[in-house]
Each structure stands twice: as C-alpha cells, then as structure tokens.
Amino acid sequence: MAEASDEQLMLAYRDGDAGAFETLYARHRARLFRFVLRSIKSRASAEELYQDVWMRVIEARATYKPSARFTTWLYTIAHHRMVDHWRRAGLSVVSLDTVDPPAGDPGPQRHAEAREVLTRFAAALETLPPAQREAFLLHEEAGLTAAEIAAATGSNEEAAKSRLRYALAKLKSAVDDG
C-alpha cells in the first residue's frame, strides 16, 4: 500500500480501507501542519485548523474524485479554511518566539549571527502579504507548481507565478542582507 499513489489511497479509503488513510495521513501530516502553523500565529488555532482540514478530507471521502493531484485537493481545502480563519481573526504568520536555532553548535558568536539571520528571515516571511506568503508556503512546503497553486487558491497561473516571484525576491533580499 505504501507504493500506491495518493489518489489511489484516497480512493481505497473512500471504499472503506482505513489503513489507506493512515498511509496517506503519514505522508502529508508534517508538511500540512507546517503550512498551517506558518500561516497562523497561534499554535492552538493552527492545531484546530489542521484538524479541521483533515476532518473535511474524511467527510468528503464519499464524493472524492481524482480529477487533480490529491495534494492540490488537500491544500485547496486548507486554503479555504485559512481564508475563513483570516476573515474571522485577522492574519499573522510565524511567531519569532517559536523559531528554533539551527542544528549544531557553531559557537556563541556564529550562533548569534545565525539566529539573527534566521530571525530576519522569519520576520520577512511574516511581513509578506498573505497571498504571497501562501504562494511561497504552498511551493516550498507542499511542493505545488504555479498551476497547482493557482488551482488551490482559486486564482490564475500568472497571478500565482507573480506572487511567488515577489515572495522569493523579498525573502532572498532578507537572506542576502545577512
């Protein structure tokens, strides 16, 4: 079952195979969680929204049709939930308090520098316009193409490309400044 595609797993789950869902869930859980967590400031809200996305997947299993990649479908659901959340509670992304230091121990001086660069990067990500931040996260975390980002967010491909390009330029600038 592990070699089956996401779409095959979802179809198997639709037909009552709970094990297929577990495989599917294991594949996407971490990436989806980070996508949600870095789009929403509150961890509690992120966990709630993350759970809600999966509940929607479970509820929608009966009507699932593999007309697109499962990943695109999954992040489309996440996008809609995110939009609902933003409408209700405003928007924010990564809290600087939750930024972990990089792995290894490069010494106090370099550690402080690395943390400064990372903090700057996190701040740049946080200050991105929501649409650009979402495009970046969908590309970087979920591995979606511009066309898939457009499909997931209900925009056109050119707009998705443009958002992604702007986001990358701003983030690169933040990294280069270091």
Binding site: Y13, Y25, A30, F33, E47, T98, E140, K172, V175
Partner: peptide, 30 residues
C-alpha cells in the same frame, strides 16, 4: 523557482510536527 538559500533558511525555521494526540484523534476519526 526555488532559491537554495531561501529554501535552506526556510528549513532552518524548524520541522514542527503535529502533536501525537492530534494525530491519534484524526486517525481515530478516519
């Protein structure tokens, strides 16, 4: 369009995962 430096910095933000209790809750519901 990935920029290696941007991607690396992004990865350094951490590899957060959902808490085990949340995983269990979702899988049980499924």
């Amino acid at each position: 369009e990935r920029d290696p430096k941007v991607s690396r910095r992004y990865r350094e933000l951490g590899n957060e995962e959902p808490p085990p209790g949340l995983d269990e809750s979702i899988v049980s519901a499924a």
